[in-house]
């Protein structure tokens, strides 16, 4: 799969890379929402994984823009603590699934398969 990962923390990017590249997925990485948007505009993806808590525009903003650019693309949200508000907002934006941080490689892979 071609996957877009959006997170401001490089170690998260690195971890995801380590897991997904080992499975043979094609990856694009973005540190900010704007970066991510520019990727979405140019290329199509099978999945976008995004963090919520980011400086500047947050994950929800990313999802909103993704909804505009690539409406059919599934979105996986990484979150440190799943709260009701997060679920609610995500539901209204069309989030496909959530994965809690920290996660093991198996958990991430399982989540991707579910999508």
């Amino acid at each position: 799969m071609k996957i877009l990962i959006v997170d401001d923390d490089p170690i998260i990017i690195l971890s995801c890379r380590r897991i997904l590249e080992a499975e043979g997925h094609e990856l694009r990485v973005a540190n900010t929402v704007d970066e991510g948007e520019s990727f979405l505009v140019e290329e199509s993806f099978d999945l976008m994984i995004t963090d919520i808590k980011m400086p500047g525009a947050d994950g929800f903003e990313m999802i909103r823009r993704a909804g505009k650019a690539r409406p059919e693309m599934p979105v996986l949200v990484m979150t440190g603590y799943l709260m009701q508000e997060t679920l609610d907002e995500g539901a209204s934006l069309g989030v496909t699934d959530y994965i809690a941080k920290p996660f093991t490689p198996d958990e991430l892979l399982r989540a991707i398969e579910g999508v």
Binding site: I12, S15, G80, P102, T104, P105
Partner: peptide
Amino acid sequence: NPLTAVLTFTHM
């Protein structure tokens, strides 16, 4: 976040 990395890489 760092915990994610530790967990991920250890499992890898």
